[in-house]
């Protein structure tokens, strides 16, 4: 390699000097990021881990809230695992993830395929579909609540026009059956433009020769889609399902907005009363805002564990060839 000459004197190294040089520059380039990450991400995680074994109590002085937290051992974790509301939060998150992640991947892909042609105005359409992604989730959620209103919202009126009176009577976010799908629907519509851009980028990177080869082999359009395009897009699908999972585990503002901060309509689960849209992110927020910092930290670590397991499974299934 001509680059070896950079090592200067040409002496044979077990490990060429330029590699050290390269490594030093590597560290130089990551230092700013790593510094910020260490202070504002890694330290907080370690600190939260410490907090997850402590808890505030009624008499915690606000001026010294953290020093005033008491050691409780594993009680925060045990409390959570024994609470049916926590289990419902997990189930609701899981259901929501199943509703939102595959749908948004499919919708994004479909949109990308539609707009991957020289359809007149394709550029404007791409931008138009992308635009809602950048809006504040909370604000969009509030508007959707207005749209889902059973009395004055256009959707209930639309379904009545179709002859379905059910929504007029039971609402969209007012019954435990349709609340999660309704929120998921709103969020898929909002986010599919972003996925579309990602898929367009990925499509862009697929060499044309592959499709030419497929055509020569006599593949029709459907075969090309399922046997060529989608397998080649697998890394992007993996990426989107992992980031989708991250998004779902963090999802909070949409639930806060679309349930008027209540957590949604109540129903019975494992003998306890739970609220249909109190997903893990919402649950966590409530713990946080009620100053149960220890419980909140413990819950985060349980969620992290679950997230890691799902991601690992994801990689096993989707990442085989990636």
């Amino acid at each position: 390699m001509s680059i070896l000459t950079l090592s200067g004197n040409g002496r044979p190294h077990k490990r060429p000097l330029w590699l050290y040089y390269d490594a030093i520059w590597g560290y130089v380039f990551i230092v700013p990021f790593l510094l910020v990450a260490a202070v504002f991400l890694i330290f907080p995680i370690a600190y939260s881990f410490y907090l997850s074994f402590r808890e505030t109590w009624l008499y915690s002085n606000w001026f010294d809230q953290f020093a005033d937290m008491r050691y409780v051992g594993f009680r925060n974790y045990v409390d959570l695992l024994r609470n049916p509301q926590f289990w419902w939060a997990l189930v609701a998150t899981f259901v929501y993830a199943l509703l939102v992640i595959p749908t948004s991947i499919a919708a994004s892909l479909a949109l990308a395929l539609f707009l991957n042609t020289r359809l007149p105005g394709y550029r404007a359409l791409r931008s138009a579909f992308f635009l809602p992604h950048v809006f504040d989730v909370f604000v969009v959620g509030i508007i959707w609540l207005l749209l889902y209103n059973p009395q004055i919202g256009p959707f209930a009126e639309f379904f009545r026009w179709l002859g379905v009176e059910w929504f007029k009577k039971h609402g969209f976010v007012d019954n435990p059956y349709t609340i999660l799908p309704s929120i998921a629907f709103a969020m898929v519509l909002k986010g599919m433009g972003f996925g579309m851009i990602l898929f367009l980028t990925a499509l862009n990177n697929i060499p044309d020769s592959i499709f030419e080869a497929a055509e020569i082999d006599g593949a029709n359009a459907r075969q090309k889609l399922f046997y060529v395009t989608i397998p080649l897009l697998r890394p992007m699908i993996l990426f989107m399902s992992v980031t989708g999972l991250v998004g779902v585990l963090n999802a909070f503002a949409e639930f806060y907005a679309m349930t008027k901060a209540t957590g949604g309509v109540a129903f019975q689960f494992l003998g306890a009363t739970v609220q249909a849209a109190r997903v893990s992110g919402f649950y966590l927020y409530q713990l946080f805002s009620d100053a149960f910092y220890g419980h909140a930290a413990a819950m985060s670590f349980i969620l992290l564990l679950i997230g890691l397991v799902i991601t690992w499974v994801n990689f096993r299934i989707l990442g085989k060839e990636a």
């Binding site: 609540l145 889902y148 209103n149 059973p150 009395q151 004055i152 609402g171 969209f172 976010v173 007012d174 679309m258 349930t259 008027k260 209540t262 949604g264 309509v265």
Partner: peptide, 15 residues
């Protein structure tokens, strides 16, 4: 009662 107690419905003040 109109069902105004529901989260998604017109609340009493609006109605």
């Amino acid at each position: 009662e109109a069902g105004a107690w529901r989260d998604g419905a017109l609340d009493p003040d609006q109605g």
